[in-house]
Amino acid sequence: NTVSASTNTKFFQNADGKYHLVVYVVEDHVINAQASQGDNADHRYVLRTSFGGSTFGEVVAMGSIASGMEIQNTFTAQLVAGWNPDNLRYFAVIWEDVASTFQYINGNLVEETTVSSSIQLSPEELGISWQVQDDNFLISAQLSRATDQLQIQMMDLMGRPFFTKNYSRLPEGKLELHIPAAILPSGNYPVIIRTPYGVRSMMVVK
């Protein structure tokens, strides 16, 4: 499984320095051994890894930084088998590098994350269909079980993503999404639906 995390870093005042951004992967409710607690202790908020494997992440700003400056980043990482995707949380932290000593500046929970698997789901596991309705593509997905995360992505005629919608904590049942199609040229548009437990794809035609 892979996970992608999107961040937006904004400086609210002028700054001068070298700033790093890292996204940490934390798992809650890890059941494992603990001294005096036995083999089934409930461990809260276990630090699993960081995106890229670096403790303090990558440099996102350096030198003189103006108030209002914004920086967007997307990080992708592989999840290790045995981690529970439903219990994973992603925390972004900004560190300032002061003469190779890292000082904490700010941190926040990353809300925009997508966990996906390369396993191809059957129509019974994830039913998908489409139709054109009022200059929109109507994408329908029938979920056979609840999912903590789901992503619907449409590609353009060159195979590049141009529309992405992320959902969280969806129940079992039907999901519908309208994608504007009026300005799109005629052609075939791939649609990919990703979940933590698998993926399905289809081609929609205008």
Rank of each mutant, 00 (worst) to 15 (best):
Y19V: 13
S54Q: 12
A182V: 14
A77G: 12
D148S: 15
P196S: 14
M158G: 07
T55Q: 15
H43F: 05
N1C: 06
L109H: 05
Q34R: 12
A33L: 03
R194C: 06
D148V: 13
S116Y: 12
R145T: 07
T101N: 11
E172C: 04
K10L: 10
Y197A: 01
Q13R: 15
S144R: 03
V23M: 11
N84L: 02
H178L: 15
R160C: 00
F162A: 04
D148M: 12
G68H: 06
L21R: 01
Q133L: 03
G68S: 09
T9M: 01
Y45H: 14
I139G: 03
S201K: 09
T147W: 01
V199S: 13
D16C: 07
H20M: 07
D28R: 05
D28W: 02
H178D: 10
H20F: 10
W130S: 11
F102I: 11
A41E: 07
T113E: 03
W83P: 13
S129T: 13
A61D: 01
G82K: 01
V204T: 10
F12Y: 13
W130N: 06
V98S: 14
A181F: 06
Y24V: 00
S168L: 09
P161F: 06
R194W: 12
K165R: 10
S64T: 15
Q103V: 15
E70V: 03
P185V: 06
F51T: 02
Q103N: 14
A66S: 12
A81S: 15
V199R: 14
S67Y: 05
F91Y: 14
F102Y: 15
A35N: 07
T74W: 03
V59R: 01
Y90W: 09
A33C: 00
R200K: 08
T2C: 03
E172V: 10
W83R: 13
V60E: 00
E58K: 10
D28F: 04
V3L: 04
F163Y: 14
L21W: 01
V30L: 08
H29A: 13
I31Y: 10
A15D: 09
G52A: 05
V22K: 02
F163W: 09
G57T: 04
R44C: 02
F11R: 05
G107I: 07
